[in-house]
Nucleic acid binder design. Sequence first.
DNA 1: AGTAGAACCGAGCTTTTGCTCGGATTATGG
DNA 2: CCATAATCCGAGCAAAAGCTCGGTTCTACT
Lengths: 216, 216
Amino acid sequence: MPKKRALPTLAPRKLPTQDRARRTYHAILEAGARILERQGYEALTTNHVADLAGVGIASLYEYFPNKHALVAEIVRHVLEDLLADLARSTQLITTSPPQEALEAWLGSMYAAVVKRRAVVTVIVQEVPFLWDIPAVENARTMLFALARSTRELGASVGTPPLSDAMVYLLATMTGAAVLEAVLRPPAEHTPEELIETLAEIINRVTGERAPTRRRR
Amino acid sequence: MPKKRALPTLAPRKLPTQDRARRTYHAILEAGARILERQGYEALTTNHVADLAGVGIASLYEYFPNKHALVAEIVRHVLEDLLADLARSTQLITTSPPQEALEAWLGSMYAAVVKRRAVVTVIVQEVPFLWDIPAVENARTMLFALARSTRELGASVGTPPLSDAMVYLLATMTGAAVLEAVLRPPAEHTPEELIETLAEIINRVTGERAPTRRRR
DNA sequence: AGTAGAACCGAGCTTTTGCTCGGATTATGG
DNA sequence: CCATAATCCGAGCAAAAGCTCGGTTCTACT
């Protein structure tokens, strides 16, 4: 009888309260992230992390009950960083024509991911329990909410409303496209070209259009 | 000095020539696939695979020089199966209106992936060296070629031609959407609804449209 | 029937892994 | 300044990993 797939606790055992401890804690996460991006998930052993962080292995287990919890926390931090970047540059976008605003936003999303290319690559492609990390689920929900909110924004501009399914698909597809463009950049297209084209695609889907042949 | 990320050989050591050997070979691959889909990549140990296949561990190493090669071969087979399915159902699609043909094609792509949902999930999300497997690169290229070929087909129908970047993006986005819909099906939408909407999206991008406000 | 080579095998080696133990060291606050 | 709690530590254990060794068994072919 093969044992089922069960996950250990993903939450940290405790958070550091003293200053020295906070530095240790961060050193561990930092070291972990570095190993992830430089050598991949398989090379991320707890001993290795502790070594690189310059702390004893037991100190690592002071804070993290197991390896999975450590990884989950690293992922959470990277994601937090990423979203913060995104939120920051979103605020800066003030150009009025929606077409240009969209392109600018896509550009900053692209930039945000590029900045962490190495870690993101490993996280997305190698962490086995990625989608069991609460922070990931949360980010997903947030992004969908954002997408849905832009729908009403579009409606106020006068473009026809989009079905919920369409918003869902558009959001996932856009996310996937940006990720793909960063992780496996096609040799024959520059990032700028891709961003611009992506904006054009979204525009064609959401914008006003000629009456199509009635379907069905 | 941390050792760099280097991959061992991914090709099988040798192929079976006798009948008995062919059965062994297949039993190994079969067992590997089952473990993958039922317990995930981390549970796929060479000993475990040999056990489940009912062969000695040394027999496994007769054919595969190392664990990675075994995994690569499993992936190759799954992919082959999938593409075969897809090609088969592609041929069957004969309905003339491009809109319905598109929807039918997306449907069969969806079905093909669903049929192997469990393995595909693990392969896509957990195999660390997935994109170093030649067969994967090949499949990618093939699909892009297919997408590019439909462009000319579209042109013959009279719709405006698509830029190369647009075809690339459309292809990746479509693939990602289908994969996403299968791996993490949203509770609020049925597969049929998603397929239909996806077809509609592609249609809006590729179809004829009203003159938009000039960009830039 | 006999032999060469293909196929099979499992005990067990080497290495590495995640993690604990028992205790030393450092900070806090009364 | 002292006691209590927080923090740090590394040797090393138990388990499991990938893979080899030396050999037996089976198949094909003359």
